[in-house]
Design a protein around this nucleic acid. Sequence first.
DNA 1: CTGTTAGCGCATTCAA
DNA 2: TTGAATGCGCTAACAG
Lengths: 316, 316
Amino acid sequence: MLCFAKAFRLVFEKGTGVIEKTYNKDKLQLDFQVNEFARSLRMNKSMTVGVLLPELDNIFSTRIVSEVENILMEHGYSTLICDYKNSPALERSKLQFLTRKMADALVVMPTHLTAEDFADINKPVVCLDRPIEQFDCDRVLVDNRGASASAVQHLVAHGHERIGILCGPREVYTVRNRLAGYREALLQAGITPDESLILFGDYDVKTGHRLTRQLMQSENPPTALIATNFDLTTGMVIALNELDLRIPDDISVVGFDHAELASAMRPHMSVVLQPIQQIGQEVANLLLDRLQGGTQSMREIVMPTCLTQGQSAKHI
Amino acid sequence: MLCFAKAFRLVFEKGTGVIEKTYNKDKLQLDFQVNEFARSLRMNKSMTVGVLLPELDNIFSTRIVSEVENILMEHGYSTLICDYKNSPALERSKLQFLTRKMADALVVMPTHLTAEDFADINKPVVCLDRPIEQFDCDRVLVDNRGASASAVQHLVAHGHERIGILCGPREVYTVRNRLAGYREALLQAGITPDESLILFGDYDVKTGHRLTRQLMQSENPPTALIATNFDLTTGMVIALNELDLRIPDDISVVGFDHAELASAMRPHMSVVLQPIQQIGQEVANLLLDRLQGGTQSMREIVMPTCLTQGQSAKHI
DNA sequence: CTGTTAGCGCATTCAA
DNA sequence: TTGAATGCGCTAACAG
């Protein structure tokens, strides 16, 4: 069998990349291109990590992925991104796709996946932002309860009792936990949560806009608002503007994510910040450990959040 | 050689998916998993299309990709997404990665790529939103000149002459063309463009915010503003709010993209809309044609935009 | 140190 | 109809 690999290949490591020069019997080939299918088949690995995200247009997840990517790249791994557009069916089929077709390991930000979906997946999996019930795998989570609790405490400290909260979809893990933290913090402050101040919807700008209008135009509107992700925060700010409600004179607010914009605004907006860079690092490290054959037991890492105080909350 | 494929496989087509059942000599295997590396090596194709984007967090590109994905899926193709974070080096290396490792064809939204980068790529390529000089490949573009011209005309019709424009990075194709359309429409209306009203920056919310403040706090601010993508539009609206400038009473504006938010706002915002769904369809069709062996010459499709009139522009 | 070979799992072809 | 043989291009093990 005449093999291509019969050729004599000099491999120079140069920085992060690899330059391969091939000498054939008759000719010097400088433009040799490895067939990655063959290599992957032979090695039974593709040096590729699959990333499964709910949707692409979300600054939180894409920024984390960006971090993960940077670190993995330094170790010779590439990153493939799939999104499932918040569809349970797509979520499962893309998981299958990444697993069977491509990836040596997975980073998954699940919504509806269950342990069953991972039954025949014998590859390292790291859950990002959300765990999967009954499925023991490495995971990097955020202290969601603490996040919203700190927002509530900040507002309570300014005398607010009627605090509205804009939430994402009910079924999402982070949404439930952020809401739980909100309730706990209110109760701890001796305030009974008013269910009419709790609104759910999609995690997008339009929803933030709609829910804010709904809340502020109700009979008994809140004196303060918490938005629980960046898009909701943006929609909230736009809607308050339209309603001629000034921050913080007419309404106090706490936003979520995106320090740059929050501190560019006048007055600075108080925001809950998730440690995006560190989350990415933790994910990458867990992944690399597993890929390098670590056989430790499952690890769960919970990252703290931090409330950056601006001037978007005012004493009532 | 004992081949796995020695097994007898029944293949049932069921909807879009394929269920494969394998009977081995000794046992009935229902959980047979194809080795996609081997299949790809043998077939010399992966049934996968690679998508290369400047960044993930951009509603315009991710929505288009979503459309493309839907159509390709119906034809048995999967989609892989890579972003290059606006880095020229990454842009090239990810192109290489997608080409060599994975994809049968490519959808590329280029910034710095040149014809040279495609010299040794013998796969179908469709350029999305931006062409590549000297490189003849299928492409789907948008009438960017017409887009910004229609925004200018809309404002001029309301008596505005000092119209500011928030642009993305100078080097981007769409930015240059949108700016050109702006200049042309002004000149056509007998107005000499004022260079101090033209600002460049990144295509993000923070930049929209910053540039708007800069423009509106200058000595001789414009009476109307055009933002040339969705993130810039969002930043603009937030900044105008902070500056206590009411739309449209104090300032007229035209935004870009995202019909849903524009029409949710009060008053409705006038926006330039790009036909995202159709763009996705055109891209997918071009791709499928090539993948099915069409050998037509290069095709360029330019999509029209449409200005949706809201009440965000007022007679001066 | 250099060149040859085996086999990864698949789809295809050929043989029975 | 059904089973066996071939080779896709690679890497690793082996032989000279």
